[in-house]
Design a protein around this nucleic acid. Sequence first.
RNA 1: GCUCACAUAGCUCAGUCGGUAGAGCACUUCCUUGGUAAGGAAGAGGUCAUCGGUUCGAUUCCGAUUGUGAGCACCA
Length: 639
Amino acid sequence: MSISPPIRISFPDGNVKSFDVPPTGLSIATGISPGLAKKAVVVRVNGELWDLNRPIDRDAAFEIITRDKPEALEVIRHDAAHVLAQAVQELFPGTQITFGPSTEHGFYYDFARDTPFSDADLASIEQRMRNIVKRDLPIIREVWSHEAAVAHFEQAGESFKAEWIRDGIAADEELTIYRQGEAWLDMCLGPHLPSTGKLGTAFKLTRVSGAYWRGDANNAQLQRIYGLAFANDADLEAHLKMVEEAEKRDHRKLGKQLDLYHQQEEAPGMVFWHPKGWAIWQAVEQYVRGVYKAGGYQEVRGPQIMDVNLWKKSGHWDNYQDNMFFTESEKRTYAIKPMNCPGHVQIFNAGLRSYRDLPVRYAEFGGCHRNEPSGALHGIMRVRAFTQDDGHIFCTEAQIEPEVTAFHQQAMQVYADFGFTHLDVKLALRPEKRLGDDATWDRAEDALRSALRAAGVATWTELPGEGAFYGPKIEYHLKDSIGRAWQVGTMQVDFMMPERLGATYIDEHSARQHPVMLHRAIVGSMERFIGILIEHHAGALPYWLAPVQAVVTPIVSDADAYASEVAAELSKRNVRVQTDLRNEKINYKIREHSLQKVPVILVVGRKEAEERSVTLRRLGSERQETLLLADAIIELAKH
RNA sequence: GCUCACAUAGCUCAGUCGGUAGAGCACUUCCUUGGUAAGGAAGAGGUCAUCGGUUCGAUUCCGAUUGUGAGCACCA
């Protein structure tokens, strides 16, 4: 028997300890203190997370990850997924396991089973999970050969697992199996907790839904069970509270409560804007119109329908015919426009352009219709009829970078003006189905990268395969009240469309050239953006966006005439103001207008009518402030 | 589009193990003129999403359709 050299373990504080026999994370932790061993979830070995009971067979930089660390939470959640899988297989034999990762707040696991899980099943599955935790089954890591694993899963009737090992795992990749107790195992990269008891009680199954095997709609439909999991009960409780609060901000709920818009069965995915909702729209539109102007854009307007041949030329028909609406007249088929760019190209083409004219910037509040799949519709965030703050810049290749940089800065200013400080910047790269050659795509993608750098963006996420069929794009994403991210702005470089639709300009050598086309939007869809605004501000829009900025209400009917006069004066200064002359007590009216999120309530009684003053109360404050009418007008007319 | 769930008054919801329905708020009328988050009384309001089946009888059970919700897929 040869004597192996001692194993050197170095700790984060710089200490180094030698072991003659490979220690485990748990044994090292126990050596330090039993308390630490109890709190330990996994260990970090040379940067990799390892199981507590996996022998450390090499010299290593070593760190103990306790339960309160973010990395530990991920392990806990992943473990919950495994416990869920075991519970389901114990209760419903014959159900196949597939995958079950951790998520932002918990975990899910996808199962293959003919009968759907019911809500009642969910409750009994959760009970069984708690039972498995109580049994405190040891979780053990084993390394298997591919053949053994395939044989095992096939014999067990787990065809999805067997398929994944064959197709999804490289032959030279280490394949690990985690046993959970005597009878249950799953293939998994790990790491895991040392036993199911360590999972604790802070988990909860939330819902069951469909998902596709390997994320492809052509594959088998699986059943996904979602759950929440946290390190302790208090965190789970806090999360549930937060979700409850977030649901109160849902734009669909607030849209109804604040009487902003409605949707109905006869027009799925379309919006009926009520006066108050449309007032918000107008405020946003006026603001964006100013942005167009400041950015050197000329506002234009194209037709709503155009001959389908134009859409065949542009390539939209090939890619999106299933998602386009068509109409027909006198034996011609027209497409209801799903985009504004071909229209803008027609306007560009209507005259002879010189290189001296470039860049040409067109903008439009362009109404578009897209026949989105029914399952995609969501309030006013994802609709079939929407309006883009769309713009197209026709320019030379050299002008791309300054144009993109200027756009980025303008976009960030717009988001800040609307109260958004945090947003994600992404760069979507060439998709599989695309126009143009790779060299052109290389140039387009690099142009966007260097423009982002020039604009001072330090980090962005690159999304391979997510670009438009005609070019790569920068995307700006905001999150809704329940954490779902929505794309708002975009900037896309397009070398294809001008050529396809015959856009040219005359260069300095009198030669015809195709310009580069930049597609850009800042708020994106007006509908979606207003939905996000409603949620972000929980319905209490800032004064300049509020549909009703002020309500004037008398205390006694003797002051009705004065209240109307105050409202008329404010209205003259373009304040969106209403009166409330109803025969109700002031408490009642204050409550109602406060719930309607009106930023300013002006109360007038006999005293104010005599003094020609108003008593002003701002939303969110109980403070009252009496001002002379003349001063109040100046104050409220400031937008 | 796929899986599952849901659809009752303007809104939020209850209810009917099959005998055509109820509350609160809102609305209308009357009383009340009240100083900063709900004053009181009376009244009116529903083909229980649509279409079909089972049944003596369907809002209730079954099926289809439409729409909505969650997730998946999609998002020019």
